[in-house]
């Protein structure tokens, strides 16, 4: 369990983090979303010890996070960091050894990951000869090489084609299923919605919303109802309690003042073919939260 508590950080006059609090439990996949400069990378870099916070703390299983614990974390920085002139497998084994693996264990872990990420044929290529997508896979492999207890990934999906996204998502889901907490940032909100158990929305250094996608939807202030009534007389919806958002033939979308009254009036007007809440997309929740 990773707990981030009231993190504060400022660069000169600019406040980067203004009391960020969040937690990620075992096996939880946490999607970290927010505009550029909102504080995602700063938060992750503080967790990894790359930056010092001005105030607040990060705890792992109830204890303050230290160097030895961080060594067992997997980290992917926002800007990709690999040695351009090193071969793929050589590089993976090097990072594995640095994380304390024996030569044999590092080799095995490297072989397994390359196989899993479809890079076996490129194992002896120098990194700068790989496509960007493949370099990103290597970067992920570096983060995973020592079978980490926690994964901190800054924009792992940016610049990947759909196939690479699926491969990467598959590996993350597997780790998460094995009980590893995963936190990753992304601007691809559909992807976050699809993969994540919980989501945190950050804006201007503050967490503006956090919870499961369902919880975030529940929090939505303006819930929308979609009603379809066949064979209703025109204008039947005019007197409905609430605000009509859209009307199109038999279909009406509204923010109801009294949903049960809407149902009753709809049933009087004709045959009700559809009556239900519209589930907002994460992107809509996000826009509303950061507005």
């Amino acid at each position: 369990m990773l707990r981030i508590d009231e993190l504060r950080k400022r660069y000169g006059d600019k406040i980067a983090l203004d009391g960020v609090t969040l937690s990620v439990g075992p096996g939880e996949m946490f999607g970290f979303v927010g505009a550029n400069g909102a504080g995602k990378s700063t938060t992750m870099r503080i967790v990894m010890g790359v930056l010092d916070a001005d105030a607040g703390e990060v705890r792992w299983n109830g204890r303050p996070l230290d160097f030895e614990t961080r060594r067992r974390f997997g980290y992917m920085p926002e800007e990709r960091g690999l040695y351009a002139k090193m071969r793929v497998a050589e590089q993976l084994e090097y990072f594995g050894r640095l994380r304390g693996l024996t030569p044999a264990a590092a080799k095995k872990a490297s072989d397994d990951l390359l196989e899993r990420l479809g890079l076996t044929e490129r194992r002896d290529s120098e990194v700068d000869s790989l496509s960007l997508g493949n370099q990103q896979r290597v970067q992920l492999a570096v983060a995973l090489i020592h079978d980490p207890e926690m994964l901190i990934l800054d924009e792992p999906f940016s610049g990947l084609d759909p196939i690479a996204v699926d491969a990467l998502a598959g590996v993350l889901a597997e780790r998460s299923a094995a009980g590893v907490p995963v936190i990753f940032s992304s601007h691809q909100l559909e992807l976050v919605e699809r993969l994540c158990d919980s989501v945190g929305i950050i804006a201007a250094g503050r967490m503006v919303a956090a919870g499961t996608v369902a919880e975030l939807r529940g929090r939505e202030r303006h819930k929308r109802l979609r009603v379809v009534v066949a064979d209703a007389r025109p204008g039947w919806a005019d007197g409905l309690p609430g605000t009509i958002v859209a009307k199109d033939g038999d279909e009406v979308i509204l923010e109801p003042a009294d949903d049960q009254e809407v149902l009753r009036l709809a049933a009087q007007a004709g045959r009700v073919e559809h009556f239900g809440w519209i589930e907002p997309r994460l992107s809509e929740i996000f826009r509303e939260a950061v507005a």
């Binding site: 870099r45 990894m48 060594r71 920085p77 960091g81 690999l82 640095l98 983060a143």
Partner: peptide, 17 residues
């Protein structure tokens, strides 16, 4: 500079001093 500029150092310093 290679390590600093490419941020390799961020990964390295998560595991070594």
């Amino acid at each position: 500079v290679e390590e600093k500029g490419s941020r390799i150092v961020e990964i390295l310093l998560a595991s070594v001093r």
